[in-house]
Each structure stands twice: as C-alpha cells, then as structure tokens.
C-alpha cells in the first residue's frame, strides 16, 4: 500500500513513476516550417528561442502537464523527420 500516492500530490510527483508519452526532436533536422505546431491536438509544440546551426528558430516540446497523447500526428506531418521518435506511454 505504500506505493499509493496521497490525494493532493501534484501531477509532477506522480508522473515520475509511470512512462508518459513523449516525442524526441532533432534540432539540427528542424528547418522551422512550423507545420507540426498546428497538428498537435494538445498544443504542446511551440517556437523556441533556440536556434540550430543554420540560424532557424527551432520548435520545442513542452509537456509539463503530461498531456501528450503519443498520437504521432506531429511526426507524420514533419517533412524533415526532425521528430525522430514518438513514444506512447
């Protein structure tokens, strides 16, 4: 019974114990076309301040609430395969 979390624990605390859906972005492959941003049903992909070697403002995946569905719509759309891996938790 010791493994159960008490009511009131934050999502962040619980999430460390289970595998959550996530994507992996290769920043050097991203060419900043931003087609993936519109595809994400949870709006988890945003334009970041980081740039790659070519100076493109690349996208970043920010999922602090563990909302990612692992649907891979972003990876299916990405014309440059910059989203190299998608995991469904």
């Amino acid at each position: 019974m010791g493994n159960f979390k008490k009511i009131g624990d934050t999502i962040e605390n619980v999430s460390s114990e289970v595998d959550m859906s996530r994507i992996v972005i290769d920043s050097e492959k991203c060419k900043a076309c931003y087609l993936c941003i519109k595809e994400c049903p949870k709006h988890l992909i945003k334009i970041s301040d980081k740039t790659n070697k070519l100076g493109d403002k690349i996208v970043e995946f920010n999922d602090s609430q563990n909302a990612c569905l692992g649907c891979a719509l972003c990876a299916t759309r990405c014309p440059d395969m910059a989203i190299t891996e998608v995991y469904k938790g």
Binding site: K31, L35, A72, T76, P79, D80, M81, Y87, K88
Partner: peptide, 24 residues
Amino acid sequence: METQVFKIPESFKKDFRYTFCPGC
C-alpha cells in the same frame, strides 16, 4: 511500459539530413 509508435524508417541512411526547402 512505453511503446515506440514512430521511428525513422530502417531503409534510411544513418545521419541523413534532407536538403529540401522548409515545408517541402
């Protein structure tokens, strides 16, 4: 247990990078 639902196809060369324009 997480499962991988998308990966770069095995038929692709390692360390490839598309040379097309953005969004092509």
